[in-house]
Design a protein around this nucleic acid. Structure first.
Lengths: 111, 111
DNA sequence: ACAAGTACGCACTAAATAGTAAGTATGGGG
DNA sequence: CCCCATACTTACTATTTAGTGCGTACTTGT
């Protein structure tokens, strides 16, 4: 899929790992719910398909943003949580989220 | 192109306007060079095609991130600069850029 | 016996995004 | 006269990304 470098600067390197329709939302979900199972995440992200969710989680695992823990049970149980790197990325995105909320307000009030 | 809403949260609303291979870099270029002409931007973003640059600039103008000024001269002169909204988005992205630089360091030192 | 829930993988299709090459109008330089 | 530069647009193609639906293996519930 994506490129994983070479990057011309930090923003470039960061945007590469968050670009993907659901990645920032996955980060957010995991951040404020802690560990979540595949199905919980799916229900928390209305509209995501199983395929995309799995694919994004794989990539984020490869990029060391999320940790995947498999419990040897039946029915299968798999939990996802943020790594330190994922947590700090999510924090770095906070200011962006605030900007986005202002944008939402601007869009809502056409003045 | 994209969606321009509806958005489930601020991050979503913000990511929508910065997603695009060059948008964050355009923001950065305009931020630390001030007003720039089309050709200057193109030369400042190695690898961008004229088509993509024009397309991204149109979208960013629509999203009120950049301002476009046309000078009635021959040969044509068009200048792009950040709006207040674009400037504040760029500031919000600063933390993300810092995170990305750390990632670059991690990628460089495979330790 | 049969459907549901679990966490996916795979094949196929559709849609979005990006690249390439050419064309537009104008004036200056060789 | 022809080419270069400016700032694009358009047409066509290629690549990437996303959506749909089915299959898997096992267990509990009806």
């Amino acid at each position: 899929m994506g490129r994983r470098g070479p990057y011309v600067c930090g923003i470039d390197a960061a945007m590469d790992v968050v670009s993907g329709k659901w990645k920032s939302l996955i980060l957010w979900e995991l951040h404020h719910h802690g560990a979540r199972r595949f199905g919980e995440l799916r229900r928390g992200l209305p509209g995501v398909s199983e395929k995309m969710l799995a694919q994004h989680l794989r990539e984020m695992e490869e990029d060391d943003l999320v940790r995947r823990e498999v419990f040897d049970q039946v029915p299968p149980r798999v939990e996802y949580s943020l790594t330190d790197s994922g947590r700090s990325l999510n924090e770095a995105l906070r200011a962006v989220g605030v900007w986005g909320q202002q944008r939402l307000r601007r869009l809502a009030e056409p003045a």
